[in-house]
Amino acid sequence: MEPLTSKKKILIQKPLNFAERMYLPALGKGLAITISHFFKKEATIRYPEVQREMSINWRGMHSLKRDEDGKERCTACGLCALSCPAEAITMIAAERKPEEKDLYREEKYAAVYEINMLRCIFCGLCEEACPKEAIYLDGPIVPSDYLRKDFIYGKDKLVEEPLVKK
């Protein structure tokens, strides 16, 4: 068949000489690439010590928020658990006692609030469902662990630190 273009490159194959048969030029080329990377910017980070900056819509570990007076916002309405496609959230509600008025915002609160981080798919639907703006997925990457039971995060790990009053 007639060639369709004039840009035809004719390859010439020659028998390899002794140095080429010993891979010397190829070794040199490879080493040159390796050494050139010593002077380039690092592609990796030292993870647990250094954290990469996440995008603003990054969804990480959950946190249960407090309001401006330091009261817990969550009222255990169960909408996060209802919306959760992985069924990772469970909670037990309790009634606020009069002396606990500074701890919880509404008359009902979550006595137990658990998220199974192995089930969670970090879709953010709980955040969207929450009518009280109590849960946000604004934390870091969930750390690894050895036991399954350690991935069930309770209120001790989820609730935000209380505000320090000056």
């Binding site: 658990a81 209802l82 509600a93």
Partner: peptide, 9 residues
């Protein structure tokens, strides 16, 4: 039944 659970659970 007060605050025992949500109806849908």
């Amino acid at each position: 039944f007060r605050f025992k659970n949500r109806v849908w659970f």
